[in-house]
Computed example of a mutant assay.
Amino acid sequence: MKQAIVARTDIGMGTGKLAAQVAHASLSAYEKAETAARNEWKSGGQKKIVLKGNGEKQLQRLADEARREGLPYALVRDAGHTQLEPGTVTALAVGPGGENVVDKVTGDLSLY
Rank of each mutant, 00 (worst) to 15 (best):
M1P: 04
K2C: 10
Q3T: 06
A4S: 14
A4Q: 05
I5V: 15
V6S: 04
A7F: 02
A7R: 01
R8K: 04
R8I: 01
T9A: 15
D10W: 02
G14E: 08
T15G: 03
T15K: 12
G16H: 11
G16P: 11
A20G: 02
Q21H: 07
Q21E: 13
V22G: 03
V22D: 12
A29E: 10
Y30N: 01
A33W: 05
A33Q: 04
A33F: 08
N39R: 15
E40I: 03
E40M: 07
K42P: 00
K42C: 05
S43L: 12
G44L: 07
G45C: 06
Q46V: 04
K47Y: 07
K47H: 07
V50E: 12
V50N: 05
V50M: 07
L51P: 02
L51N: 02
L51T: 00
G53F: 09
G53A: 11
N54A: 08
N54L: 08
G55Y: 11
E56G: 07
Q60T: 11
R61K: 13
L62W: 06
A63T: 01
D64A: 15
E65A: 09
A66R: 03
A66T: 05
R67K: 15
E69P: 01
G70F: 13
A74F: 09
L75E: 05
V76K: 00
V76H: 02
R77M: 10
D78E: 10
A79W: 15
T82D: 13
Q83T: 01
Q83I: 06
P86C: 11
P86S: 10
G87S: 11
G87C: 12
V89I: 15
V89A: 10
V89T: 14
T90W: 08
A91V: 03
L92A: 07
L92M: 10
L92Y: 07
A93L: 12
A93R: 03
V94P: 03
V94L: 14
G95L: 10
G95Q: 08
G98H: 12
E99P: 00
E99I: 01
N100T: 08
V101S: 09
V101R: 10
V102I: 10
V102K: 07
D103L: 14
D103C: 01
K104C: 02
K104T: 02
V105E: 13
T106V: 12
G107H: 10
D108A: 14
S110W: 02
S110A: 12
S110M: 09
S110H: 03
L111N: 01
